[in-house]
Design a protein around this nucleic acid. Structure first.
Length: 668
RNA sequence: UAACUUGUGGUGUAACGGCAGCAUGGAAGAUUUUGAAUCUUCCGGUACAGGUUCGAAUCCUGUCAGGUUAACCA
């Protein structure tokens, strides 16, 4: 893969431009700054992929920095989990760092800022300060402590640090501009008193710096060249720059480079929530078994589910980087894991919903061990032996007494292949008192060269191993569970997201290890769960195989509702008409007819005032004029009075070179 | 109602004024001891208008539509 053929995303363009403008490549430095207050999820992998990916691309260091400035929410457990997840994804950080490492420096700089008259201690209640802050549409007003003397500020701040005050009594804020259009610039908080134990600094501090003050300065201390974060931090950039420019005056010798914050759109996945707070709620309420429940979108959940680091990295590459709000379909993630596992996972046979199959012409007591390929796409994968006997299990769904030609599976009177074994023919069925099939009787033929339409997987009853299989469905029934203002995301939880099945697997799986991944042929990819023991095997269904047969069958009623986006964009009719018009002349005739019909319909909702401005449409934009003409026709038919504007619009159209336009005009 | 920001096939993302491409998705066919995979073909797009230009997805203006921002969270 040559470097040139790969197109750059907008961040890479920025970096290339900076290099063009003289930034030395060895000054490039990135960081990934999680707060250790929860587990990493699939959304974080985008940020991880961007920063660590850039590090790999430019051979630049990437720091892992824990943004641990709020001791109330942060724990060592999360630090450990985050490190494990990033390492598992295959990324290496240059330095493991903590914002709390910089508390002393930050404190000293804050004192400097006070001395320079750029920060002050405020002693009001948070409510009073919120009041003065104004709203996005209304400017704020200065508070009563804004002009405290430098001496008072220094004294109070020192005493805050020494623990002389209770939480909430005083805070330190930057002195910027209470009337600033950007609310973050209205004297933002820099320090609050928090008498909490910190997971690293213990009880050394009782004042803790806020995000905006800490984050940019940590970037600066680490000499990060490009500080990349998600779009919601865009408004913070102005403040980020304000702080960094002021601090630069105190340290420009030792720390010559000013970092640059840039923002990208974060990842949204359909049918998934991506908020740590909400994920925590699922854990706390026992909706899932923990942060690593295979249904969770956390990295540890995906890992336990059987996802590979490779698949996740490919997913992130395909998702791309831009500033546009996006919703990625989960099916892309599923594609990525299938793609990876298809290459690497050994094939085996397992029956999840068994029905007994008796091969009546196969001798009782006989047993053959047949050769089976481990991976047809990979010759080096070798083969194994599977036992064949007179009594087998096959999948209940693989048999019907009667069915159409479209059903390629076992029917009475017709033949299918048993994978790796013989061709069989359905003969008759045994039913219980309720009419349920309990046994299928068939005969076999050793002519395996025969062409048959269907191939079934199976296991020998005598040799099969019982195993627990956990099958997962999406956790939420709604495409965007946390996007509804009027409904809580918990309302959309899928009550049937976990199905536990007692399955039968082929004997070669007797000695699997936790984490091993397989393809259960014709069913999907499965891995060995952490709960698995040699006595009691447990498999997770990672993802099913692509199933074009399932699409042909009538869809089960219930999943109708989680298909369509419920808030279809309702654009004004005139907008749609314009859009149809723009393309009108490029369309083949049949489609023009369709467009015209649509315009005729939409025109019913259009008023003369909507349409009138289009009379001035440039001569060369014929399509728009045609659409306007068609719509005008409808309005005239509905009783609109002709006027000079209309008449001259029609007259001009009649002189046009375009036949379609002339036709529409003369029709009026 | 303010400031900032974003509009390219169903979805995501390229094209830095010059052939709208890639991936996913959907459809059809070939192949097949997995209704998988593989291979081939097809479907489908620059929000709208005006302007600048030989030439606009790209630059300018306006309109429309989304998003973000008012925690002693990050």
């Amino acid at each position: 893969m040559s470097e040139e053929t790969k197109s750059l995303n907008f961040i890479e363009h920025i970096i290339e431009e900076d290099i063009q403008n003289g930034l030395s490549k060895d000054k490039l430095r990135f960081r990934f700054p999680p707060e250790p207050n929860g587990y990493l999820h699939i959304g974080h992998t985008k940020a991880i992929g961007i920063s660590f990916g850039l590090g790999e691309k430019y051979k630049a260091p990437v720091n892992l920095r824990f943004d641990d400035t709020n001791p109330a929410k942060e724990e060592q457990e999360y630090v450990d989990a985050i490190k494990r997840d990033i390492a598992w994804l295959g990324y290496e950080w240059a330095n493991e760092l903590y914002s709390s490492d910089y508390f002393q420096t930050l404190y000293e700089w804050a004192v400097q800022l006070i001395k320079d008259g750029k920060a002050y201690v405020d002693s009001q209640t948070s409510e009073a300060m919120a009041e003065q802050k104004g709203t996005p549409t209304q400017p704020g007003v200065d508070g009563p402590y804004r002009n405290r003397s430098v001496e008072d500020n220094l004294d109070l701040f020192e005493r805050m640090k020494n623990g002389e005050f209770e939480e909430g009594e005083h805070i330190l804020r930057a002195k910027i501009d209470m009337q600033h259009p950007n609310m973050l610039m209205r004297d933002p908080l820099m320090y609050r008193i928090l008498k909490k134990h910190h997971h690293r600094t213990g009880n050394d501090w009782c004042i803790y710096p806020m995000y905006d003050w800490t984050h940019g300065e940590s970037d600066y201390i680490e000499q990060i060249s490009h500080s990349l974060c998600s779009l919601e931090f865009k408004p913070h950039r102005e403040l980020y720059n304000w702080f960094k420019e002021h601090v630069y005056g105190y340290a420009s010798k030792e720390l010559p480079m000013l970092p640059k914050q840039r923002e990208f759109a974060r990842l949204n996945l359909s049918f998934t929530i991506m908020s740590k707070r909400k994920l925590l709620k699922l854990v706390e309420q026992g909706i899932v078994s923990g942060w690593d429940d295979p249904r969770m979108p956390t990295i540890s959940g995906l890992r336990r589910r059987g996802y590979t680091p490779n698949a996740i990295r490919h997913f992130i590459e395909r998702v791309g980087v831009a500033k546009r709000e996006n919703v990625i379909d989960v099916s892309l993630l599923e594609f990525c894991i299938r793609e990876d596992l298809n290459k690497s996972a050994p094939r085996v046979m397992a029956v999840l919903d068994p029905i007994k199959l008796i091969v009546t012409n196969y001798p009782e007591g006989k047993e053959e061990w047949l050769e089976a390929e481990n991976n047809p796409g990979d010759e080096t994968a070798g083969s194994r032996q599977v036992p064949f006997t007179r009594e087998l299990y096959i999948e209940r769904a693989d048999f019907k007494e009667e069915a159409s030609n479209k059903f390629f599976r076992l029917k009475l009177g017709s033949e299918v292949r048993l994978k790796n074994a013989y061709i069989i023919k359905g003969e008759h069925v045994v039913k219980d008192a309720n009419g349920n099939i309990t046994e299928i009787h068939c005969t076999y033929s050793t002519d395996t060269e025969k062409k048959v339409k269907g191939t079934l997987h199976w296991v020998s009853i005598k040799h099969a191993i019982k195993a627990e299989v956990r099958e997962y469905d999406r956790l939420f029934m709604d495409e965007a569970p946390d996007s509804h203002q009027d409904r809580d995301f918990m309302e959309f939880i899928n009550p049937n997201s976990l199905k536990t099945i007692e399955a039968f697997v082929e004997p070669s799986l007797a000695d699997v290890s936790i984490g091993d991944r397989f393809q259960f042929q014709r069913l999907g990819y499965f891995n060995v769960d952490d709960d698995s023991t040699p006595e009691h095997l447990v498999f997770n269904k990672t993802v099913g195989l692509r199933d074009s047969w399932a699409k042909q069958k009538p869809k089960p009623q219930q999943n109708q509702n989680h298909n369509k986006p419920q808030q279809q964009k309702q654009r004004p009719a005139i907008e749609v008409i314009k859009q149809l018009g723009k393309k009108y002349t490029n369309l083949p005739e049949a489609k023009q007819e369709k467009s015209k019909a649509e315009i005729l319909k939409l025109a019913e909702e259009v008023s003369y005032d909507d349409l009138q401005p289009l009379f001035n449409t440039a001569t060369k934009k014929v399509g728009t004029r045609i659409a306007t003409m068609i719509a005008l026709g409808v309005l005239l038919k509905n009783g609109l009075q002709r006027n000079d504007d209309i008449n001259s619009f029609i007259a001009k159209a009649l002189e046009d070179k375009n036949e379609l336009l002339v036709n529409e005009a003369s029709a009026l």
